[in-house]
Structures are given as C-alpha cells and as structure tokens.
Nucleic acid binder design. Structure first.
Length: 917
RNA sequence: GCGGGGGUCGCCUAGCCUGGUCAAUGGCGCGAGGCUUAGAACCUCGUCCCGUUGGGGUGCGUGGGUUCAAAUCCCACCCCCCGCACCA
C-alpha cells in the first residue's frame, strides 16, 4: 500500500465525517484520550505506540455500536521550547544540527525558530499531519493548544485555578530548589551536565562556641548523633573563612557558604574575613557533651559543601580518622593525644568501624578517593543497624536512625543547631556553572499533601478500572508519597495565574482536566475570550447558575449555553486515558487529583491504561543516541498499518516494548501479500457447494471476533492484534490448504468482509482496502462487529482430529526415514470408544488411553465416543493424502487382516493406528 | 534508599492470573528444497538431545517446597530495567 492510498482514505474519512463525534442520546458513548504531547519536536514511535492503543480501542468501540469521542490537543506550556529557541538564536551548533538532522527541519523554517511560538506552531502543524497519516480517528474540530496563545483554552485554565483556589487547594509557600546562580533559575535533572538524580538534602549545622570568644564555629553534618564521639574540629588552613552575623549569632563559616546561606533566607551580615590557619590551634566547646576540643587543619574539606567546618568523629567517619592519622604521622603536636571515641555498636564491625574500613580498603590518606566508598559503607551500615552505646548519656540504646532525629531536636532546642539544604554531590548546570540550593519564596503550591484530597484520589483509584491491574498499587503509593507541588513558574510559556499575573501555571498543572474542555472546545470557537467567563464554565461543568443570566452576561445565546452543558453531560466522564508508565507518578496522578477536586463523583475518570516505554532495537530512544524514529519516518518506511501492527504487537501490560525494523518490514510484506492474494482468490473462487472447510473458516471468524471482544475490554491489545492479523491470516492460509485452492466465492467474500471489520481497529487502511475488494462502499467503520456468526463446534472437532492424524503420520514417516507406498489407518468405532470411556478394554491399552486423554484439549475430550471416526477421516481423505503425500485408506479395526492386526489393535479413541507398506 | 516491572529454546517475543491441549507462540537468524538466467522477494519443510510406528530424556534466572502433575502456585536468593518532583 502506498502513501496515496492512505491519503485517499484519510480524505474519505474526513468527507464522510466518520470520526466526528456528535451527541446522540440514543447511543452509548465512549470518551477516550491520549495525553497532549509537547510541541518541541516531531512525534516519534513512542507516541505512535500509545496513540495506536487509544485509537484501536476507539475504533473497536465504534464498531461495537458506541458513539466514540477521540479528540486531541497540543502542549505548549513550559520552558524547553523557549530555551531551544534562545539557544538557536545564540547559534548553538549542536542544537542546529539536532533540528536539521534528527527533526528534519528545513533551513528556511529553522531561521524562524528563534521565535518559540513559531516553533510550537510549526510542530503542531507537522504532528497533526503525522497523526492523520497514522490513521488515528480524531475529531479535529475540538483541537486546542495550551498557553495564552490559545486564549479560549487559557480562559479555561483560569477557571480551573480560580476554582481550585476557592476550594482551598492552592497555597503559598517556600521550597528548596537546585539553583543555577548564573541563569538565575531552577535546574532540573535534564538541564544538568553533571549530577543527574541528585536532589537537596538537609544538612545539620551545629554550633561550637569558640573558647573565650562570643562567636561560633558552625559545622555541617548529616549525622548529628555522632556529636558524642567528637574529638576535634577540622578547618581548611588554606581557605578563607568569614565572621558573620547571621540571625542572632556570630558565625564562623567558609566564605563560599555566605551566598548559599543568603539564598536560603538566612540574614547574613559579614563582619570580617579570616584565613583558615588563623583558626587552627584555637579551642571550641562541643555542645551537648560540653567538651573542649582543638581546631585542627585538614585538606579534605570541600568549600562548596556546607560551611567548610567539620567536626571530627574518627571512630565512625573515615575522613576524620584519615585526617587525624595524617596529622599524627606528620608529628603535628596538637593531634598527638587524640584517640577515636567509639559511640555506635553495629553488627559486622568492631569498636572503630572507620579504622576497619580504612584498613580493609587500604586507604592511603584523606585525599584517596576510596575514602568516599568507606564513608558510604559505614553510613549505610550504621544507619540501618547501628545502636548508640552507653557513653551517649540518655540517648544510649537508641537506634542511629532515631537518635539522629532526637539529638538534633535537642540541639535545636538549646539554640545550638539549625539546618540548611545542601547538594550531597556536585551539580553542574548546562551553562557549566556549579549549582546550589535556593529556597524560593512566595511560590504557589497545589496542596497534594492534604489528607482529604488524598483520600478522594484514593477512592477514585480504588473504584476506577486500571489496566494492567499491577498499576493500581503504584498509583496508591504515589498518592501517599505526593507532597505539595509548586504549580506556577516565572519563565517559559503558559497561562498566567489569574490572581498573580507574574506567575504562569506550570505544565503538569495545566494539563489535568482539559478533557472536560474537549467536550465543548468546538462550540467555544465561535466566541471570543471576553465571553468565556467563569460563570459559563461553572454552569457547563457544575450546573451552577441560571443559563439565561449566563447568556446575558456572556452574550452567548441561551440555547447554546444549555447545549454546552448537555454536551458536557453527555460525554463526561473520560472513559479511558492511555499513557506510557512514565506518567504514572506525575501527570496521571495529577489528572486524578484535579478531577476529584473539581468534579462530582459521576464525572471522575473511569479507566486508565498504562503501557511500557518503547525501545528501538532494544535501546532506549534518545536524540543523543540518534536512534529516534519519528512517526513520519516510520510511516514512510513501513506504511501506517505495518507500523501500527508492529507497535501494537510489541508489548503487553507494563513491559517495555521493543520496536524492530525487521519485524515491521516483515509485516509490511505480509500485508501486501494478503491484499494481493485476496484479489487472486476472489477471481479464482467458484460457487461450489458449501463444505466443512467453509464452516471451519467461519468458525474461526466467530472464535476470533469473540476473543478480541474479551481482550479489548481489558486493553489486551497485543493479544487482540495477534488474533486479528496473524491468526486470521493463518486461518486463511490453512483454509486454502484444506480446500486445495477450490475456494467458495461467497464464503470467501464473507470471510474477507468479516476480517476487514475485525482488522479495522488495528490496521484501518488495510481493512478499508479489503472491504472495498469485496464490493462494499463507503467505509468499514460504518459496519458492526461480527457477532452471532453460527459456530459449529463439531466441525472444529473433526478438523482437529484430521490434523492430529496428519501430524502423527508425518511424525512416523520422519522417524522411519522412509516414505511408505501405502498407508492404512485403523479406526475404532463409536461403540468401541464408548467401551474405552467406560473402562471396558484391555488393561495396558486402557492405561495408555487414560494417559493420552489427560493431555487432550477439552474440545476433543467432550466428543470421545460421540463421533464415528471412520466417517470423519473418509470425508477428509483428499486432504489427508495431500498432506502426507502417500495414498491412504481408512479401515475399521475389526476389518484388519491377520498381518495388520498386530498394529491395528493399538488404536485408541481419537488416536487411530496405522500400517505402512 | 523507597516504589514499580521483569528474567522463557542463537536473538527478540508469547504463555504465567484460571497447573495438565507446553519441547513450549510468532518474528528474525540459520539449514534444505521450490520458483528464478542469477539475486531479492515469495512458497514448502526443518531448526534442544536420543529414537526405523506416533515414544523417551533434558528444559522456561538459581535453590527449595506444594501437587498424581509446575514455565505456570508458594518461599528464599541472584541478576536486569524504569520512576523518585519545579522536568516535559
């Protein structure tokens, strides 16, 4: 099938209005959705995979008599489009290359990409075409884009957020983020050169009062419980420190910590600078233990982490032990008397875990990178199994885990501890600047932590259908874990928050209930933004207010206002939303939260289907690997239907799918072959009488159509497409073998027509072609799913018996390695078989029979003793002989000659004996 | 670390929920034959081991268990993949 055939069908569907969804009160509806994709590039096979699943389900439902709505919009909200445009404007060569080579953007278009809105528009156009070519049955009248560039949609988002705020789900607060001081913006995982997966952790700051001075050395640590083992303080002799008034105390900290503390809302007033070595030799008081300890020099201190002041616990911290050992080795006087103090009992270690680890890993000194490994080992061992020893006062006996919390709380109560956010590992922004943590103030949050809200979301998850079932627990876990979520940004594209226009509603928050907007999107296009007031949406979605009053304040005719409400009520709720599993912990869960917050229970989503991620030739798709296949390319190479079948049959449930070019190519060939054979067979077939093989073929249709009905309801699309394409094709081939190419024309036409309908959800273009070939007009999508085809089980049983006989004979021919000239098959009579069933037979044959019977399919078991086998084999003798390639005759066991009797008596019910000559 | 998914015959993949039809599905690869001037495509057959009558052995990450019967159920272990928030 070539492009022009596919394009012609797309045009015809549009002309016939096949996928336009109108309210029809006499029909049950199904509303399906695919998430709006982000328009920073062409859609790829991952999108095609999920969208094909949505589409197959939609088409399947349509063929089963449902009124189906499948709309599509586009996501423009967020930063990446803007960033890409900026980088292009700056002439970023890597970026230019990606757009040209991977996205295949022509030069004259690329020039205009420095305008992010142009870029988004361009991809929207291109991707709409790609979706059409893929054969998706979308009602395009309801299309929208997010952000203020679609002012009608924007008015809807304003309504959504005003309503959420009214209901108390929006709050203001502050939040720590990874921050690039150069870009002055938060740095997400994907914007990092280094430090992917690193997120801020809370470091504890502990105050050590300098002896005889009113200032405090402020040490940073993750392990406040180790204060009981402190022996000294480390500072770097070469670093610059500052004395600064912070909040109500005078702190001594590394100079580089000042900016970070300021970004975390500490009020910092630097008094003076001090060199590290000026501090060395002084003494400080350790809090809680009230002990005087020396300040010593160390080289392992990282000025970019914490305060560049560290308190030393050599028994449990490898760096501390190493620094101490280094110092003692060099003969440093103040270090000589210091020995580790063991305070934690931990399984697998003796008194001094740090010493043991250092020796085990043969770590040379404090600059050895292995010291990190040692630190991690002890950290995790002590965290999981450590218990504080007797020398920890009232904290003795507590687990490390518990002590960490209570010791800190005690110190905080004494005014001798506070905390700051810190990055446990360095993060480098794409702009090559090292990042730190900043606390953003006055952020707008969605209160996902609200227990009432969570409970409603849980209820929704519990009552909806989720495919596959395993995903349900995942949703419940996410709901538990979810915390307040910042829902507005200050950069990128989006809709301004209606009450605080400096902020834009962020991308995961403006894409949660737009499905409701689809129901009226096409109607709203007649009106301008000023008319789309909150009152209108309140009425349409909640039934609040009086339509005549709403008509007067919006200028929208009252009947139109009422019809919008009716259309919403008709289509809502969403019956199925499909996405890849990566959206479970974010988008899909937010989708649930917002629905339960805004809508009545009967408008909560009915079902979610989750699928795996798509890989290409076993590898994750990514621009950097250069293995991204766009939908456009896929269609060009394989055709839409082969692409769809290859994708749909590549995985089920949450398994990752694997797209293989060879497989898609094989399907492409097979489709072409099928269409070609249909032409030939329709020509060569005749009006001969109907026989058992014809019945068998229609039996297959009956079984397959039923199987698919069962599987589609569970979103088992892989199984369904396997039946609709592969099993049906095999049945077609087998049928032709059975009838030896003497095809019944009427049966063939019926079969092809049914096949077209069954295949239509998965391979719509091929289905239409098949449908035309048997003389049908218009579109296969105006048909009904084949049901009520008569199924004659006994014919299946007979053919199964014949096939088993053929297999057995072939097997024996293979073993004896010699083709016989004549085969005689000996069959038990019906009465003999009944005797077997009743246990009346010689013991050893009976045992053999029982063994075979156990492993017989139920279909056959039920017919033992109910069929005269001889008649069956005689009826199909032609076929049997063709298959085995040797003359065959059928005899009753009782008619065996003396020389044949030896073999003939091995015959069992449904297992004839045979003699070769 | 927390959470989710998974390990099947050279490779990819089905089966597992509801145990016997499972030496196990389909595709690729490979081998033989057909078609062809030749090749490609296509078609037929074969593709764990043994076996001159339809049988037997081994086998579905590893080790145990339940059962007349386990790829399928239970337990433990090993390994792989994915998500973890200001990112769409």
């Amino acid at each position: 099938m070539n492009d022009s055939v596919e394009d012609a069908w797309v045009k015809k569907w549009e002309a016939l209005g096949i996928f336009k969804a109108e309210v029809d009160k006499y029909k049950d509806k199904v509303f399906v959705t695919f998430p709006i994709p982000y328009m920073n590039g062409p859609l790829h096979l991952g999108h095609a995979f999920t969208a094909s699943r949505v589409d197959s389900y939609a088409k399947y439902k349509k063929l089963n008599g449902f009124n189906v709505l499948y709309p599509q919009g586009w996501h423009w909200t967020g930063q990446p489009i803007v960033s890409a445009a900026e980088r292009l404007a700056k002439g970023d060569e890597k970026m230019v290359k990606e757009f040209k080579e991977i996205d295949k953007v022509p030069d004259e278009i690329l020039e205009k990409f420095k305008d992010p809105v142009f870029m988004a528009k361009y991809y929207t156009e291109r991707n709409r075409e790609a979706m059409k070519k893929l054969g998706l049955g979308i009602d395009w009248r309801r299309e929208f884009v997010t952000t203020s560039y679609d002012e009608r949609f924007s008015s809807f988002i304003e309504w959504q957020f005003l309503t959420l705020r009214e209901k108390g789900y929006v709050t203001k607060g502050s939040h720590p983020v990874v921050w690039c001081p150069r870009d002055k913006s938060p740095v997400g995982d994907h914007d990092r050169l280094q430090g992917e997966g690193v997120f801020p952790v809370e470091f504890r700051l502990i105050f050590f009062k300098l002896k005889d001075e009113e200032s405090y050395l402020v040490a940073s640590t993750l392990r406040p419980e180790t204060i009981f083992g402190v022996t000294n303080i480390w500072v770097s002799p070469t670093l610059t420190y500052v004395k600064a008034k912070i909040n109500d105390k005078v702190w001594i900290i590394g100079k580089s910590a000042v900016e970070r503390l300021k970004d975390q809302l500490f009020e910092v007033e630097v008094i003076s600078e001090i060199k590290g070595n000026e501090l060395i030799g002084k003494k400080a008081i350790a809090p809680l233990v009230n002990k005087e300890i020396p300040i010593l020099p160390a080289s392992f201190i990282d000025p970019d982490i914490g305060t560049a002041v560290v308190y030393s616990v050599p028994a449990h911290a490898p760096y501390d032990y190493l620094a101490l050992r280094d110092l003692q080795k060099s003969g440093y006087k103040d270090a000589q008397g210091i020995s580790p103090i063991s305070i934690i009992e931990v399984e697998g270690y003796g008194e001094f875990p740090a010493v043991e680890e250092v020796e085990k890993l043969k770590i040379k000194d404090q600059n050895d990178p292995n010291a990190d490994v040692a630190t991690k080992n002890i950290y995790s061992a002590e965290f999981r199994k450590g218990v504080l020893k007797q020398n920890c006062g009232s904290y003795a006996g507590l687990s490390v885990n518990a002590a960490r919390k209570v010791v800190y709380e005690k110190l905080e109560e004494l005014g001798l501890a506070t905390s700051m956010w810190e990055l446990p590992e360095p993060i480098i922004c794409r702009c090559t600047t090292r990042c730190h943590v900043k606390i953003l103030q006055d952020q707008w949050f969605l209160k996902y932590s609200d227990e009432r809200w969570k409970e409603a979301a849980r209820e929704c998850v519990r009552t909806m259908k989720i495919y596959p079932e395993e995903a349900r627990q995942w949703f419940l876990d996410v709901i538990d874990w979810l915390n307040d979520y910042p829902c507005a940004r200050q950069s990128g594209l989006g809709t301004p928050l209606p009450w605080d226009k400096n902020w834009l509603v962020e991308t995961l928050s403006d894409s949660t209930v737009y499905m409701a907007y689809y129901t009226i999107a096409h109607r709203l296009k007649k009106y301008n933004r000023e008319q789309l007031k909150k009152e209108l949406y309140d009425y349409v979605f909640f039934g609040k207010g009086d339509p005549s009053i709403i008509a007067s304040i919006t200028g929208i005719p009252e009947n139109e206002v009422r019809e919008m409400r009716e259309e919403f009520l008709y289509w809502y709720p969403v019956d199925l939303r499909v996405s890849a599993k990566e959206l479970v912990p974010n988008h899909l869960t937010f989708f649930i939260f917002h629905h339960v917050a805004l809508f009545e229970k009967n408008h909560w989503p009915k079902a979610i289907a989750v699928n795996g991620m798509l890989r290409v030739e076993g590898e994750k798709m990514s621009k950097s690997k250069g293995n991204v296949i766009t939908i456009e390319e896929g269609i060009k190479e394989f055709g839409a239907d082969a692409l769809r079948i290859a994708l749909l049959s590549s995985s089920e449930y949450m398994d990752d799918a694997n797209f293989k070019r060879e497989y898609a190519r094989a399907i492409k060939e097979r489709i072409a072959k099928i269409l070609q054979e249909i032409d030939q067979d329709l020509k060569s077939s005749t009006n001969r009488d109907k026989n058992d093989y014809d019945t068998w073929l229609l039996n297959m249709v009956s079984k397959v159509s039923k199987d698919i009905q069962e599987n589609m309801e569970k979103m088992n699309i892989k199984l369904s497409v396997t039946e609709a394409f592969f099993i049906m094709d095999n049945a077609y081939k087998d049928y032709k073998k059975f009838v030896n190419s003497n095809i019944n024309h009427t049966v063939l036409k019926d079969f092809i027509k049914y096949w077209a309908i069954i295949l239509a959800p998965f391979a719509p273009f091929t289905a239409e072609e098949m449908y035309q070939k048997v003389g049908e007009k218009d579109s296969v999508f105006l048909e009904n799913w084949p049901s009520g085809i008569q199924y004659e089980e006994v014919k299946d049983v007979e053919i199964e018996l014949v096939n088993r006989l053929v297999e057995d004979i072939k097997e024996v021919i293979k073993i004896v390695k010699k083709k016989p000239t004549q085969i005689t098959v000996f069959v038990l009579s019906k009465d003999d078989s009944i005797n077997f069933v009743n246990g009346k037979a010689e013991k050893d044959v009976l045992n053999k029979f029982m063994k075979i019977k156990v492993s017989m399919p139920d279909l056959l078991k039920n017919y033992i003793g109910k069929i005269e086998e001889k008649e069956v084999y005689e009826k199909h003798l032609d076929y049997i002989m063709r298959q085995v390639g040797v003359p065959v005759n059928i005899k009753s066991v009782s008619d065996a000659s003396n020389e044949e009797a030896q073999r003939a008596k091995n015959a069992l019910p449904f297992k004839p004996a045979f003699v070769f000559k």
